[in-house]
């Protein structure tokens, strides 16, 4: 204490350099994915909650006969859930963050995969919750109700991703919005006005179309991930 009071301590020399020489602990891939959850925009969560609320009101609160109406209402909401999912996936490109993200340790491909995983998990939870809420209220079996609900979602996702993989992101968004509105509208019209399409005899057709769309969707996702490995090169740069 006496020495401390007798002498004034010297100013630190090359303090910053010393501090920078430390190898600070790195975040794991798991930490990175968990961090990404916080960066999913609020509207995605809100739409998911709204969809579950619609299913709850339709499946548990409304009269039994209204349950069918709930099915077509929910399946008509699904294209919009697909739209916000696709928009969320393409956020890096639309906000011109892709180049910066590509140069980071967890690159754009990791970001897209993380977002894809988070959104797919969220959508799956929403879908299962809605399905359980409608269980026993509709004359169809659970898996058949599932196909009717998921079909517009998968159709919108596949077409939107195909558009985004083909056209530059910003212009693509307008087309994607158009696609989701179109799918939602057609779904409402067909299911409500021509309920015969939901008859037993057409179930095989639904299954074949559903599986084909699933394969198409997987292909589009692979294409999208491949695209994120390299910045889309433009001849304008060297013009």
């Amino acid at each position: 204490m006496q020495i401390k009071s007798a002498y004034k301590s010297p100013m630190p020399v090359r303090r910053d350099e010393f501090l920078h020489s430390f190898n600070y602990p790195k975040a794991s891939y798991g930490d990175f994915v968990i961090n990404q959850i916080g960066y999913i925009r609020i509207r995605v969560w809100l739409l998911s909650v709204a969809s579950i609320a619609a299913a709850f009101i339709g499946g548990r609160v409304c009269h039994y006969t209204d349950a069918f109406n709930t099915l077509w209402v929910i399946s008509s909401i699904m294209p919009f859930i697909a739209l916000v999912t696709v928009i969320e996936l393409m956020r890096s490109t639309s906000c011109h963050m892709a180049e910066l993200e590509m140069s980071c340790r967890y690159s754009l491909t990791d970001v897209i995969l993380a977002r894809l995983g988070i959104l797919a998990g969220l959508n799956l939870m929403v879908f299962i919750t809605m399905l359980l809420l409608l269980r026993g209220r509709i004359e169809y079996s659970l898996w058949r109700t599932g196909i009717y609900m998921l079909f517009p979602f998968i159709l919108t996702c596949s077409l939107s991703l195909a558009v985004i993989n083909f056209i530059k992101a910003r212009e693509g968004f307008y087309i994607c919005s158009g696609i989701s509105c179109f799918v939602s509208m057609i779904n409402s019209i067909v299911v409500y006005s021509v309920p015969i399409v939901l008859a037993d005899r057409y179930m095989v057709v639904w299954c074949i179309l559903f599986l084909s769309l699933m394969i198409f969707l997987v292909l589009q996702i692979f294409k999208l991930i491949k695209k994120t490995e390299e910045l889309q090169w433009s001849l304008v740069l060297t013009a």
Partner: peptide
């Protein structure tokens, strides 16, 4: 902070 997470830094760091 977002860029830091992408660069593999912990949230605190």
């Amino acid at each position: 902070c977002y860029m830091g997470c992408l660069k593999g830094l912990t949230k605190k760091r």
